[in-house]
Computed example of a mutant assay.
Amino acid sequence: MSSLPFFRTKARTFFSLFAAALLAVLPVGCSMLEQTERELVFRIEPGTASWFRGLPSGVEELELTTPAFGDKQNIHAWWWPADQADAPALLYLHGSRWNLTGHLFRLEQIRSLGFSVLAIDYRGFGKSLGELPSEASVYEDARIAWDHLKSLQPDASKRLIYGHSLGGAVAVDLATDLGQATDDNAGARALIIESTFTTLADIATEVADTPWPIRWLVSQKFDSIDKIDQVRMPVLIVHGTADPYVPARFSQELYDAAQEPKRLLLIEGGTHNNSMRIGRQEYRQALDELLGKTPNIPG
């Protein structure tokens, strides 16, 4: 893995270009401004991740849709049931750039903890048909996927939400929405967010090496810090202490704002993508403690 300075240089370059591009299109109009911002926020890599070697046996490919989608939009998903019958089921929400093929390694790690996993590509990513994603569209996709997960695991006490990086903000939004539902069976057992941030403006300001006022330019808010205190389920917040993209202090701030029961797990030496692998036992223990060792998840 590359060094921390190299990663931070890449991040600073990205957000400096982000600010420059936004300022460049300001005279053209709000529509092009938002289009450019969304392109830079989601940074979609087309095709298959170079390290993807195919789907493991047992993974079912799904196409989720609604009548409003028509024939030009859908949500491509993977459903990977656990070996244990009626195992807890987890909705996996990924971050920017890579589609599902770039996330299989983490799905394998999650499933090894005893979960069945439903993972989606937002519209515009991978095999999911649709235009360039927006904050609103990825929130909608998460809700559609959650409705499908309820049919795969009808027991609300055995359903969890997981979000990584930008997907953490999507997960917080979904959990907030579920906390306001009147249907007792609509909710989740717990929320797990990893390597995520407080708001998009905060992370952009943190790493950008530019005098431009990025905070006031972003329209895609991904504002988890103002939502997380409305989450009405146990929350596990995980962050690697050596994350080169998103400082772990953002997870500390989210933890401070969240309601009990909650747990902050800082993985010593963990980076943006490897905390679950190098901190597997700590992860296992934190989940057991947060969930009160129910539902039963094999160690």
Rank of each mutant, 00 (worst) to 15 (best):
L26A: 11
L26H: 11
S31V: 14
E60L: 01
W51Y: 15
W51G: 01
W51A: 05
W51Q: 12
P56H: 03
C30D: 15
E60V: 06
R43F: 05
P56R: 05
P56Y: 00
E60I: 02
M32W: 15
A49C: 12
L62K: 10
Q35G: 07
S50D: 09
G58R: 05
E39K: 10
R53K: 13
P27D: 09
V41E: 02
L40D: 01
L33E: 12
Q35W: 08
E61L: 07
L55T: 02
E61T: 11
G47F: 07
T36Y: 07
P27K: 11
S57V: 07
F52V: 05
M32K: 14
P56S: 05
E45C: 11
R43H: 09
F52I: 04
P56C: 03
V59C: 05
F52C: 00
L33N: 13
E34F: 04
E45R: 10
P46D: 01
L33D: 12
A49S: 10
E61N: 06
E60Q: 11
G47K: 01
V59H: 05
E60M: 06
T48W: 03
R53V: 15
F42S: 13
G54D: 12
L33R: 15
S31F: 09
E45W: 09
G47L: 02
R53H: 11
W51D: 15
P27S: 07
S50K: 14
G54F: 07
T36S: 06
F52D: 04
G58P: 02
T36P: 04
T36M: 03
V41T: 08
E63S: 15
E61P: 00
G58K: 02
L40E: 06
M32C: 15
M32G: 05
T48P: 02
L40V: 03
L62Q: 08
V41A: 03
R53C: 07
R43Y: 07
E60F: 00
W51M: 03
E45S: 13
E45Y: 05
P46V: 14
M32E: 15
I44L: 09
R43D: 10
E39N: 10
T36G: 00
S50R: 14
E34A: 11
V28N: 10
G58L: 00
R53E: 11
P27H: 10
V28E: 14
E39T: 04
E37R: 05
A49I: 02
S57I: 02
E39Q: 12
R53A: 10
S50H: 15
T48I: 14
S50F: 11
F52M: 03
I44M: 07
L33A: 08
G54L: 08
E63K: 12
C30A: 13
S50P: 11
S57E: 11
E37K: 02
R38N: 01
E63L: 12
G54N: 12
V41Q: 00
L26Q: 10
R43E: 13
G29P: 08
P27M: 10
E63I: 09
F42T: 09
P56F: 03
E39D: 10
S57R: 06
P27W: 04
L33Q: 12
S31I: 11
S50I: 14
E63R: 13
Q35V: 14
W51C: 02
